[in-house]
C-alpha cells in the first residue's frame, strides 16, 4: 500500500529495539508472575517445582473468598446501574435534534475519564463520611454508588458509538408500520443496540472489578475487595498465593476482553 517515499515508522533506526523492549517491559513481569503462581516453594524468586498449592490455598482462604464475593457483587451492581444510566444518556444525546450545549453534555458525561481518580476518591470520601454520620448506614451501598459513578462513561462510549452508526430510517420505517414510539424502541432500537449494551456492560464490569484507588478511600472497615485485599497483603509477607489470585484475575480479564472484542467486531 504505502509507497517507498512515505514515512514508515517501522523503517526508522532502533524501531525494532524499542518495540521489543516495550513488549518485554510489559509482558515479562506478567509472565514471571504467572509462572511463580505455580511455584511449589514459598519464594517469589526461587523455583522449587510445579504445583497448584497456592491456588488451593487461595481458594480455601476465607478472606479471599469474602473479598472476591464482595468484588463481584459490587461489579455486577455497578455495571447494571451504570449501563442503564449510560443507555439512557446515549439515547438522550443521540436521538434528538442537535441542541445548544450538546457538546457540553458529552463533555460532562465523559469528564470522569479525565479527572484524576484520586480527586474523585477524596471528594467521595468527604461526602460519604458525612452521609455515614447522618444516616448511620455503612453498607456496600457507598462502594456500589461510587463504582457506578466512574463506570458510566465507560459503558456510555460503546453504546453511543452503536447508536450513532445506526440507520435512523429504521425507526422511521417502524413508525410507518404502525409501531408506537415505545414499540419501535422495544422491537427495533433495543435489539440493534444490544451488542453495544453488552460491550458497555462488560467494560463497566471489568473497570469496577479492577478499581483500587476509589475503593480504598470509600470502603468502611472489613469491606475489602479483591484488589484492595491484594494491596493489603503486599504490605506483609508475600507468598505466591498473591500470584495465584492475580493469575486467575488475569485469565478472567482476558476472557472478558476477548468476548468484548468479538462482540464489538461482529456486525458493525
Amino acid at each position: 500500500m504505502a509507497g517507498k517515499r512515505h514515512f514508515d515508522v517501522r523503517r526508522q533506526p532502533g524501531f525494532a529495539f524499542v518495540a521489543m523492549f516495550s513488549f518485554f517491559a510489559l509482558y515479562l513481569p506478567m509472565a514471571l508472575l504467572v509462572v511463580y503462581a505455580f511455584n511449589a516453594g514459598d519464594s517469589l524468586a526461587l523455583w522449587e517445582g510445579f504445583s497448584f498449592r497456592w491456588f488451593v490455598s487461595a481458594w480455601q482462604n476465607d478472606t479471599v473468598q469474602d473479598a472476591t464475593l464482595r468484588s463481584v457483587i459490587i461489579a455486577v451492581c455497578a455495571a447494571v446501574l451504570a449501563t442503564s444510566a449510560a443507555t439512557m444518556a446515549a439515547l438522550a444525546t443521540t436521538r434528538t435534534r442537535p441542541y445548544r450545549g450538546q457538546t457540553f453534555t458529552y463533555a460532562l458525561i465523559n469528564q470522569p475519564l479525565m479527572i484524576p481518580e484520586i480527586v474523585t476518591a477524596v471528594a467521595l470520601l468527604i461526602v460519604f463520611s458525612r452521609i455515614k454520620v447522618w444516616t448511620d448506614y455503612s453498607g456496600l451501598g457507598y462502594l456500589i454508588a461510587a463504582h457506578t459513578a466512574f463506570c458510566v462513561p465507560f459503558a456510555y462510549l460503546p453504546i453511543r458509538a452503536r447508536l450513532e452508526s445506526m440507520d435512523l430510517s429504521l425507526e422511521v420505517a417502524a413508525a410507518d408500520l404502525y409501531a408506537t414510539p415505545w414499540k419501535a424502541f422495544r422491537y427495533i432500537t433495543l435489539p440493534l443496540l444490544r451488542p453495544g449494551i453488552i460491550a458497555g456492560f462488560m467494560l463497566a464490569f471489568v473497570i469496577s472489578l479492577d478499581d483500587v484507588v476509589i475503593t480504598e478511600f470509600v470502603k468502611s472497615g472489613g469491606q475489602d475487595t479483591l484488589p484492595t485485599y491484594m494491596l493489603g497483603q503486599l504490605r506483609r509477607v508475600v507468598t505466591p498465593e498473591i500470584n495465584a489470585i492475580a493469575t486467575v484475575f488475569l485469565a478472567f480479564s482476558v476472557v472478558i476482553v476477548t468476548a468484548f472484542f468479538l462482540m464489538t467486531r461482529k456486525k458493525t
Binding site: 440507520d167 430510517s169 429504521l170 422511521v172 420505517a173 417502524a174 410507518d176
Partner: peptide
Amino acid sequence: NTVFQSYALF
C-alpha cells in the same frame, strides 16, 4: 405505508 428509497429493512 412507505417503500423507502433506502429500503430501510430491519
